[in-house]
Design a protein around this nucleic acid. Structure first.
Lengths: 126, 126
DNA sequence: CAGAATCCTTAAGGATACTG
DNA sequence: CAGTATCCTTAAGGATTCTG
């Protein structure tokens, strides 16, 4: 009984900490989806010009390695942010679009961008 | 001289590419400020209970190495998101607060959190 | 108590070469 | 054209130890 009380207290402590982390770590999860080095760039590019071909993206990104580009696109696809359509032609053609849900990221991205612009001014005062 | 020219060209190239990235992906810059593994957690914790002592943060983060915690706090301070006040007492006491500008991050963080909650439902449909 | 200093591990991303 | 497949580099973060 005594022991159970102790365990319960420990349990509560753990529960508290677990809740704390889960409630606050939500953003870490978002970063896993859009935190890749080129992902926001890709999302914006595909949003602005949809559908977008692989080659176009590669040209716009300029100095990104092809393998990296493919890998970032694959992750965005896996996470349901973009969809990929390959045409059975020769030479091959692949088009990328934002999914409807992917589009819900746009305002979120804009809020990050806006914050940065305000931040830029603030930093001059530091 | 020849060598210097080459070095300068390489330097310029690198600079150019760096600028491209920074100009085109504003959000990447934001991630540099709040993208650290514990930073949003720290910002929320300090926001919810301000001022916050180092020891309190350490206890709440539970499994973060002390050196990591210090490093993340230092970066947030350098970037003007939090401010640090050390008291000349023994034992030492250090308190952290959000700066006024740091507080402008809160709604941005909330928008990320909200997006995640919607995303969680969407993922079940994938 | 709140660090600093040092060393170490891992994973993201990149360079390069090859292919249907 | 749009990829794979390998191999490699680097930097973030962590473990550990020491200190005013």
């Amino acid at each position: 009984m005594e022991k159970n009380t102790i365990i319960d207290n420990e349990g509560l402590e753990k529960e508290k900490k677990k809740n704390f982390k889960e409630n606050n770590c939500v953003v870490t999860n978002v970063f896993k989806v859009i935190g890749g080095k080129w992902k926001v760039l890709l999302i914006n590019a595909i949003y602005n010009d949809c559908p977008k071909r692989f080659g176009e993206l590669r040209r716009e990104m300029e100095d990104v390695a092809q393998a990296t580009l493919t890998s970032q696109l694959r992750e965005l696809e896996r996470d349901g942010i973009i969809c990929r359509k390959a045409y059975a032609e020769s030479p091959p053609r692949v088009e990328y679009k934002l999914t409807d849900f992917g589009k819900t990221l746009i305002p979120v991205i804009r809020s990050l961008e806006n914050w940065w612009h305000n931040y830029a001014e603030y930093r001059n005062t530091l």
